[in-house]
Nucleic acid binder design. Structure first.
Length: 211
DNA sequence: TCATTAACACGGG
DNA sequence: CCCGTGTTAATGA
């Protein structure tokens, strides 16, 4: 059987016939850490189903600075893609592989067909949309109303979860870019967390002790 | 008050 | 030496 991972992952949710179609039409795609899966303005031709790994979703402001919105992981799909199926087909976001990842690419024209044919697919799409929408609101809330130290804490926890390790290999500068702030601030806040024994700092890596 | 920018010193690879 | 880190001073919101 092709696409065994997809079968295992989605078998509880989808009808047999749908699983068959997924196996038949889905293109398995493996990407390395840092690979740009989607750029702003790029046309959306496939809908990704995450099999493993993690993807970082970024928005860009008018000066061209990145801003981290959220991560998508195993079992997730991309809300932006869903959005694109309802109207225009251009992506508004940038998607970068946070770690090595595997995806199953479904040609977008199948979406409509499956929506009609398979109740489980319809349910999956609406639920995904719902989850992404909530996550988006959270992201907005976080950016608009949280202090930088709260955002930093959440960021570290997200990264640890996404990478499956309490020790994160990253520089202060990279954090600053993701959170859209300056390295001075990141260094200062990290130092504060270290003093509170919440984390341990090393060159090129941060260990989470208790956040 | 707090973030940003620029600048500097320190130290490890 | 280069890069990441920790800090400070000046400036602005």
């Amino acid at each position: 059987m092709k696409n065994q991972e997809a079968q295992d992952l989605y078998q509880p949710f989808f009808e047999e016939a749908l699983l068959q179609e997924i196996a038949q039409f889905g293109l398995k795609k493996s990407v390395k850490e840092g690979f740009a899966l989607m750029e702003i303005g790029q046309k959306v031709t496939h809908m990704p189903l995450m099999l493993s790994g993690a993807i970082k979703i970024l928005q860009e402001d008018k000066e061209g600075n990145d801003l981290l919105l959220y991560f998508i992981e195993r079992g997730d799909t991309c809300a932006m893609t869903l959005n694109c199926c309802l109207g225009n087909t251009k992506s508004d976001i940038r998607a970068i592989a946070e770690i090595d990842s595997e995806l199953l690419m479904i040609p977008i024209h199948l979406m409509d067909e499956w929506m009609v044919k398979y109740p489980s697919w319809r349910k999956f799409v609406f639920e995904s949309y719902h989850i992404r929408f909530k996550e988006m609101l959270q992201a907005i809330d976080n950016i608009a109303f949280s202090n930088m130290d709260e955002r930093l804490t959440k960021y570290l926890l997200d990264l640890a979860s996404v990478r499956g390790s309490d020790t994160i290999k990253i520089t202060h500068q990279e954090i600053a870019v993701d959170l859209h702030t300056s390295r001075v601030v990141v260094s200062r806040l990290l130092k504060k967390l270290e003093n509170k024994k919440a984390i341990a700092l090393n060159r090129n890596s941060i260990e989470i002790i208790k956040l």
